[in-house]
Write a protein that binds this DNA or RNA. Structure first.
Length: 242
DNA sequence: AAACTATCCAACCGCCTATAA
DNA sequence: CTTATAGGCGGTTGGATAGTT
């Protein structure tokens, strides 16, 4: 799969001031040193690794190697269909927030999920991204405008309004996601539906924001977190996350 | 069999943020 | 309060491998 010996020669040594850092693929011996470090000192303080183990790697490189490859709780092997559907759902909701998505997939790294999504779904998304991008930009400008308004109105905030907004937004997401994931659909159809959902999100949110504005609502920043929880719970939830 | 293409994935980079000094 | 540093994150690169023409 990965021929370290063949590759090592192709990589240079990084020069950082008077210290020379190794770069490129890790050797078994380097892995051993890093694992020994974590066993003794625990995770963190990655810049100490070189000093305490003699490893010629900078802190960033050590952290990355540990997080993405050496951590004992990593799940090896292919992404399962269930994991894939979670990735699609969460990406449709959150976009490229890989670390956040990874938190819902125990044993999977943000890097792994990012790589998976890019190779499997990036192309499909691109088709709709041009039109979608413009819609999102408009939405962003509008949200920034709302944010300014919010700063002026924050003191007058009514908790009852919050509940109404939450209910409205949750209903909005539930309808769209459950439609995309309708149980009668095949896996291919589900995938397509999720992609469609992603494409429609900007438009839907625009109309939703208009609806809220009409009712005199202004969305606070903190609402996002609450919605994430509510949305996942509506879908049956992911117990390891909550 | 060779050339080409797609996919996989480790590892890098630059930027940002939180925290310590 | 300011500056330096470490850690975290998303984007990108590039070699290996598998599949196709």
């Amino acid at each position: 799969m990965f021929n370290l010996r063949a590759m090592v020669g192709h990589w240079s040594w990084g020069l950082v001031e008077d210290e020379v850092w190794r770069k490129g693929p890790w050797t078994a011996e380097e892995d051993r040193l890093l694992m020994e470090y974590v066993r003794i000192y625990g995770e963190g303080r990655w810049n100490s690794v070189a000093r305490l183990t003699g490893l010629k790697r900078n802190g960033k490189s050590c952290r990355l190697r540990w997080v993405n490859y050496l951590r004992p709780d990593l799940k090896r092997g292919q992404i399962t269909p269930h994991e894939e559907s979670i990735i699609l759902e969460l990406h449709a909701r959150w976009g490229n927030r890989w670390s956040m998505i990874a938190r819902s997939l125990p044993g999977r790294t943000d890097n792994e999920i990012k790589n998976y999504w890019r190779t499997h779904f990036k192309k499909k998304e691109k088709d709709s991204s041009d039109a979608n991008g413009k819609a999102k930009a408009r939405l962003l400008r509008r949200q920034q405008f709302h944010q300014q308004q919010l700063q002026q109105q924050q003191q007058q905030y009514n908790p009852m309004d919050m509940n109404k907004i939450m209910a409205l937004l949750e209903e909005h997401d539930k309808n769209n996601i459950s439609e995309a994931l309708s149980s009668s659909a095949s896996e291919t159809e589900k995938r397509q539906n999720i992609t469609n959902f992603h494409s429609q999100t900007a438009n839907n949110e625009q109309s939703l924001l208009s609806e809220l504005n009409t009712n005199g609502f202004v969305l606070p920043e903190m609402l996002n977190e609450g919605l994430e929880v509510g949305w996942a719970m509506e879908l049956g939830g992911y117990p390891w996350q909550w």
